[in-house]
């Protein structure tokens, strides 16, 4: 875990596997430390008439918790993931069709929303859907001493004074999505954004490496 101020931002060990499911059009599992999310994408497929949009595809996001039924918290996370995906996907290329993204939480050990965002992006890539940019999720926690911890565990989240999750885009490294909890100052917010942008470099490099590894066999 990392303390703000120094040049290298440390994230927990992360890993990913793409196209591990046979039925969905794209699937991926993303693991950050002990947090793990499985994502599946279906589409473009036929859309219900009530949900049809005449100039673009309808995106639906479902987050399934490990135990129990989705609650209000999951609904609010679904909204965050959906609007982030909508911003990066070129939905106008598939008018009057539906895309469904299902995120199954396998284990939650902190930074769940950012792990869900990463899994979503990998699954969308695997499905081969046209996108204007990639995105990744980074969670920052500010502990009681005012230090910034990137990619916190559940225990670190509990002890923190503020918790922020950002989605960063791959082209300009700007903030696509932001969801925060707890109280913080403007200065702390800007520090956290800067740290997240730095951390995003690592995740995008990982995206690049894993995709290269995957296609290196088929291309040769």
């Amino acid at each position: 875990m990392e303390v703000c101020g120094s040049s290298n931002v440390s994230l927990r060990e992360f890993g990913c596997e793409q196209s591990l499911l046979s039925r969905p059009d794209g699937s991926a599992s993303f693991i950050q430390g002990d947090t793990s999310v499985l994502a599946g994408v279906y589409g473009p497929a036929e859309v219900k008439v009530s949900k049809e949009i005449y100039d673009r595809a309808t995106l639906e996001v479902l987050i399934q918790p490990k135990v129990g039924l989705p609650s209000v918290r999951e609904r609010s996370q679904e909204q965050c993931v959906r609007e982030t995906c909508e911003a990066s996907l070129l939905l106008s290329l598939h008018p009057r069709s539906s895309l469904t993204l299902i995120l199954q939480v396998l284990h939650d050990d902190g930074s769940l929303l950012s792990c869900a965002l990463n899994a979503a992006c990998m699954a969308l890539m695997d499905a081969g859907l046209p996108m204007s940019c990639l995105f990744c999720g980074v969670t920052c926690a500010i502990d009681t001493d005012g230090q910034i911890i990137t990619d916190p565990t559940a225990a670190q989240e509990k002890e923190s004074r503020a918790l922020m999750t950002f989605a960063i885009d791959s082209t300009e490294r700007r903030v696509l999505m932001s969801s925060t909890k707890g109280s913080f100052t403007v200065h702390e917010l800007q520090q956290c954004i800067a740290v997240s942008q730095k951390a995003s470099e690592k995740i995008f490099q990982f995206y690049r490496d894993s995709v290269r590894r995957r296609y290196s066999k088929t291309l040769e």
Binding site: Q79, E83, C85, A87, L176, S178, S183, V186, L189
Partner: peptide, 24 residues
Amino acid sequence: EDRLYSLHKPGGTSLSGQKLQECI
């Protein structure tokens, strides 16, 4: 006291740091 309690941006197009400062 000018403390922030939420910066809620559920998604959509990205925002530059300068625009964010304007919002705050």
